[in-house]
């Protein structure tokens, strides 16, 4: 078990796991390399309770800038597909038309913090990526070839986000992301 660096204060509501907020900004002019990726990502802070989460969440303005991403990951997991926690993993990707990301992002992270996915230790974290024409949500898990887990994550997403039945959800393994050097292009599985 990971050593926790942050603890709930007296009277606060503890979370099952500590989570760390990250922020990153895309620099479209430069090719995406792991070096520029590491340079562009910034750790904002770690929370151990529901109360601490809301204090951070209120501080972060979301949805008003194009070309940035907010990340909420379990403490200790690095936001790189090559990290040990992510090596065999993958992610569900949901593309959203502009205007929906804030609400959907909040619902995804509340489901994650509240342990609604019921997949043991599988969830790593979630990302919202604010783009120019569309926004992208993703949720990462540890074991991409565990179909029971990935199906359960997909079904929970449909439920908590109340997704229209025609919403396209795509699953992509991190190996595929490494291979084509893109997080969202050329997705292999589409359901």
């Amino acid at each position: 078990s990971r050593r926790k660096t942050v603890c709930p204060a007296a009277g606060e509501h503890p979370l099952q796991y500590n989570y760390t907020f990250w922020y990153s900004r895309r620099t479209p002019s430069r090719p995406a390399s792991s070096q520029s990726y590491e340079q562009n990502i910034r750790q904002i802070g770690t929370v151990a309770s529901v109360d601490q989460f809301w204090r951070f969440y209120h501080l972060i303005r979301q949805g008003d800038l194009s070309g940035h991403s907010d990340h909420l990951f379990k403490e200790g997991i690095k936001l790189h597909v090559g990290d040990e926690s992510n090596r065999s993993g993958g992610k569900w990707i949901i593309r959203l038309r502009k205007g929906l990301a804030s609400r959907f992002w909040e619902n995804i992270i509340l489901a994650m913090l509240g342990e609604q996915f019921m997949v043991g230790e599988e969830i790593c974290g979630a990302v919202v990526s604010i783009r120019f024409q569309e926004d992208i949500l993703s949720i990462w898990n540890r074991t991409s070839n565990d179909q029971m887990t990935t199906s359960r994550i997909r079904d929970t997403l449909r439920r908590v986000l109340n997704l229209p039945t025609n919403t396209i959800m795509e699953y992509k393994t991190h190996n595929d992301s490494l291979r084509d050097n893109s997080s969202f292009r050329n997705t292999k599985i589409s359901l």
Partner: peptide, 21 residues
Amino acid sequence: GTRIIYDRKFLLDCRNSPLAR
């Protein structure tokens, strides 16, 4: 072990508690 589960409504209610500000 036990898992700490919260539903959405509970989490949203906590949003307005004095501890969350």
